[in-house]
Simulated assay, not measured.
Amino acid sequence: MNEEKETCQITQETTAGNIEELSIQKNESIRSNIEQLTIELGEQKEFNHFILDEKQKAIITLSALITKGDSDEELKTHFEQALHIGLSVIEIMEIIKHCTKVAGFPHSINALFIFQNLLDHNTK
């Protein structure tokens, strides 16, 4: 039993050491990316070098807007875009549900009403 604890502890120390070593090696790359992002934000350039696909970006945007609250029109627009790029109704409902844990019930129920109104309007 004690041997297991020692092995686990050594693994954790080694892992922590590797992470520290990696972070030192990658520091210049991260700094370069932050500098590039700062320049692009200042120049209001379009970001087109992300690794994320359109669905992933939509999930992040919806999550941010739901959590932010008080962004009804933006949320409606992004719900429409999310459906257009292929997110399902079930996936969007799961995003809203998940945001309840982070944003709280009022923000999530508001998002749910906005989404439901959009769906009702599109089915007429």
Results as ranks from 00 to 15, higher is better:
78 H>M: 06
66 I>D: 04
32 S>Y: 15
44 Q>Y: 05
51 I>Q: 11
27 N>P: 03
95 I>G: 01
43 E>R: 13
53 D>Q: 07
42 G>Q: 14
49 H>V: 04
90 I>K: 15
92 I>E: 00
54 E>W: 03
34 I>E: 05
26 K>W: 03
33 N>T: 07
87 L>S: 00
38 T>C: 09
36 Q>M: 12
25 Q>R: 15
39 I>F: 06
63 S>R: 11
97 K>A: 04
91 E>T: 01
46 E>F: 06
63 S>A: 13
47 F>K: 13
69 G>A: 04
57 K>N: 11
92 I>G: 00
79 F>A: 01
89 V>A: 05
24 I>A: 10
66 I>W: 04
38 T>G: 13
34 I>R: 11
59 I>A: 06
72 D>E: 11
47 F>N: 10
88 S>V: 00
85 I>G: 01
31 R>T: 15
36 Q>F: 10
44 Q>P: 03
39 I>A: 11
59 I>G: 06
43 E>H: 11
53 D>F: 01
61 T>Q: 10
73 E>Y: 06
77 T>C: 07
60 I>V: 12
38 T>I: 10
37 L>A: 06
95 I>D: 02
35 E>Y: 09
42 G>K: 13
47 F>Q: 10
49 H>D: 13
64 A>H: 07
42 G>F: 11
52 L>K: 06
87 L>K: 02
96 I>T: 02
94 E>V: 02
28 E>Y: 06
80 E>K: 10
30 I>C: 08
34 I>M: 09
87 L>P: 02
72 D>P: 02
71 S>L: 05
79 F>P: 03
60 I>R: 10
66 I>H: 04
61 T>H: 07
61 T>S: 09
34 I>S: 04
96 I>R: 01
85 I>V: 02
40 E>A: 08
95 I>E: 06
28 E>H: 08
90 I>F: 14
35 E>F: 08
83 L>Y: 03
93 M>A: 08
79 F>M: 04
59 I>Y: 10
35 E>G: 04
78 H>I: 01
51 I>T: 15
87 L>I: 01
46 E>G: 03
90 I>T: 13
71 S>M: 08
48 N>Y: 07
29 S>D: 12
56 Q>Y: 00
51 I>W: 09
40 E>F: 08
61 T>W: 05
29 S>Q: 12
67 T>C: 10
83 L>F: 01
37 L>W: 02
65 L>P: 03
39 I>E: 15
36 Q>G: 05
53 D>V: 00
43 E>I: 06
38 T>R: 13
53 D>N: 12
26 K>L: 12
65 L>M: 09
64 A>M: 11
68 K>R: 15
47 F>D: 07
43 E>V: 06
25 Q>M: 10
86 G>W: 00
55 K>E: 11
46 E>W: 06
69 G>I: 01
63 S>W: 06
50 F>R: 09
53 D>P: 05
43 E>D: 12
74 E>K: 14
51 I>F: 12
49 H>T: 08
76 K>H: 09
90 I>L: 12
87 L>E: 01
59 I>N: 08
90 I>D: 15
41 L>K: 12
87 L>Q: 00
54 E>V: 00
93 M>P: 00
60 I>L: 15
76 K>Q: 12
24 I>M: 09
56 Q>M: 08
